[in-house]
Write a protein that binds this DNA or RNA. Structure first.
Length: 551
RNA sequence: GGCCCCGUGGUCAAGCGGUUAAGACAUCGCCCUUUCACGGCGGAGACAUGGGUUCGAUUCCCGUCGGGGUCACCA
């Protein structure tokens, strides 16, 4: 009786590993090409951190003419959620980081290294587990969860390091004969890795992001095949990333402390280990404490949040790139119109500690992104958003396309475009007064400021529309006329003059403008009034003035 | 608690033994201007802390404190 007999008894149907080694050969890529992946669990929720990881992985692959693939880590059947794969894949595709290979829809996949869903790879893991057993590098463990629990309690009471290792690893010491006997007697078993490590020895590792780190060696005989026959994360990671020929493992830094184990697994399996890049998570300040963005507590943790709020995808991506490499900001300033594909992302420039998520900064990035768009783009994106989240706005835009394009085009397209829209949900507030059907319904009072006297206001409006306003005026003439009007009403024609002669005037041309603006829009702040009047047209202006004089 | 990682303005961050310690966002003031936004100029604001090493430490070493991670048949 030897290890081979034991292995055959445990996994009678498993193939030789050489079968898989041949089926999944080295990739034929150019020197330096990075093969990487994102490996989410299908929880039905795409986290902003996942998008961040995906973005980094995708950029790296794209920059080196490598491969970026998606693998689904669904070895924990308790956590299965319906349609979770499409949720993730669609988010990635929406944000422009669609995979080159792997899962591309709920059940669809592409590529020669599949299946890309771990639950479909059971036989592969078992083949490698069998191989380890044959080599005496893994063994069946018959401990019940209760027994493991008891061991742990003893260790805790004795204040020693918990875990299944050394003298505590009961089943490790069983003879092959005893193991076979137990299996034949029908005792349930799982498979444990026989760790060759010693806790009192150190292992040095160079992480692509974190740099040199030193850990004690792993000496835990961790579970590699669970009672349900599926592998644990650690084992699946080693087998999959080897067979899928991953060159760089990019993952959250909560995995950093598993590196000694993973390296050991690769070593014992006879695989070449990939490079590791452990990225710091995006954090949030919670009453003075930093913590990871949480699915439960923070709406902004969900990728869907940005979609719902109407923050453009490009803005989210740019913000994330900003966090990834602080050089991005300078690059963007130097190359305002280049595609982000041209930006060269560098792993070694990534921060080793987690950045606090900054919504204000994101919105600032977003305002800049939107300010560079054409009216047409703004129209289309806003309409797209509104069709899902704001029916009234959607109808407004659809029913008045040409008009809306003009409204959205105010002070857009010049060297110093407006930056007042940070997300599509801001649009409504900034444009509704331009539409008669909505303006008519507006019951709020007119917010007049310096000039409040009803008679004076009526006088200004009346005189302006009958005597001065002409749609054909250019901007300079238009404003000169408002100055003249101011003079005629007894106000200062220039603000400077007003300031230089305190007491001489009660108001100035700016205040007169404000009266016009308020009567026209019920707002004290608007974009350029000349353009507004041009778009509104004389007839509407008249109507609005009449309404203002009535109320 | 053990082990590991991290600690530059409110936030993101350059810096890698000698710097007036960049820049961006936020904030404040001024300018531009009919309002707002944009833009321009300027201000305030930081090397967690105590010891070393050194002619000299934000930079190197150690301790302390603080933050984070990890110690599953979850990933």
């Amino acid at each position: 009786m030897n290890y081979k007999d034991l292995a055959d008894l445990m996994f009678p149907d498993a193939k030789e590993i050489s079968y898989y080694e041949e089926k999944y050969p080295e990739r034929n890529l150019k020197e330096g090409a990075i093969v990487t992946r994102i490996a989410p669990s299908p929880t039905g929720f795409t986290h902003i951190g996942g998008l961040y990881q995906g973005l980094i992985a995708k950029k790296l692959a794209q920059q080196t003419e490598g491969v970026f693939f998606v693998r689904i880590e669904d070895t924990d059947q308790k956590r299965e959620v319906k349609n979770a794969v499409s949720e993730i894949v669609n988010s990635l595709i929406d944000f422009g980081i669609g995979p080159d290979e792997g899962m591309i829809s709920e059940d669809g996949e592409k590529g020669e290294y599949g299946p890309y869903k771990q639950s479909l790879r059971k036989e592969i893991y078992q083949a490698y587990a069998k191989y380890l057993i044959e080599q005496g590098k893994a063994y069946p463990c018959f401990c019940t969860s209760k027994e493991v629990e008891e061991i742990r309690e003893k260790q805790e009471n004795a204040k020693i390091r918990p875990g299944y290792y050394g003298v505590w690893a009961k089943c490790r010491k069983l003879t092959v004969e005893e193991m076979i006997e137990k299996i034949k007697a029908g005792e349930p078993w799982i498979v444990r890795f026989k760790s060759p490590g010693r806790e009192d020895k150190k292992i040095k590792h160079k992480d692509v992001i974190k740099g040199n780190v030193e850990f004690p060696e792993n000496d835990q005989d961790i579970v590699i095949i669970k009672a349900d026959g599926l592998p644990t994360y650690h084992f699946a990671h080693a087998v999959d990333d080897h067979l899928m020929r991953t060159t760089h493992v990019i993952r959250g830094d909560e995995w950093l402390s598993s590196v000694p184990l993973h390296l050991q697994l690769f070593q014992e399996l006879g695989f070449r280990a990939p490079k590791y890049a452990h990225i710091a998570p995006i954090m949030k300040n919670d009453e003075g404490n930093k913590r990871k963005l949480s699915k439960r507590k923070d709406p902004e943790a969900a990728v869907s949040y940005y979609v719902e709020e109407g923050i453009p995808k490009e803005a989210v991506i740019e913000y994330l790139l900003n966090i990834a490499n602080s050089t991005f900001e300078n690059w963007r300033r130097a190359n305002p119109d280049k595609s982000i594909e041209e930006f060269d992302l560098q792993l070694n420039k990534m921060s080793v500690s987690g950045a606090l998520f900054d919504m204000v900064k994101l919105l600032d990035v977003s305002k800049t992104v939107i300010s560079k768009m054409t009216a047409e783009q703004v129209y289309n994106d806003t309409l797209n958003w509104a069709e899902k989240y704001d029916e009234e706005l959607a109808n407004l835009l659809k029913n008045n396309k040409e008009y809306s394009l003009k409204v959205l085009g105010i002070e857009r397209g010049n060297k110093k475009p407006r930056k007042d829209i940070g997300k599509w949900s801001d649009v409504k507030e900034t444009i509704t007064y331009m539409y008669e059907e909505l303006f008519k319904k507006d019951e709020t009072p007119y917010p007049y400021q310096v000039i409040q006297d009803k008679e004076a206001i009526c006088n200004i409006l009346n005189t302006y529309i009958t005597k001065y306003y002409d749609e054909k005026d250019d901007k300079q003439t238009w404003f000169d006329k408002i100055k003249e009007l101011s003079g005629e009403m007894g106000y200062a024609k220039e603000v400077k003059e007003f300031k230089q002669n305190p007491g001489k005037y009660t108001a100035h041309v700016g205040d007169v403008s404000t009266v016009l603006r308020v009567a026209l829009t019920k707002r004290t702040n608007t974009p350029d009034m000349y353009e507004i009047m041009q778009i509104l047209g004389k007839e509407t202006i008249q109507k609005r003035f009449q309404k203002a004089m009535r109320e």
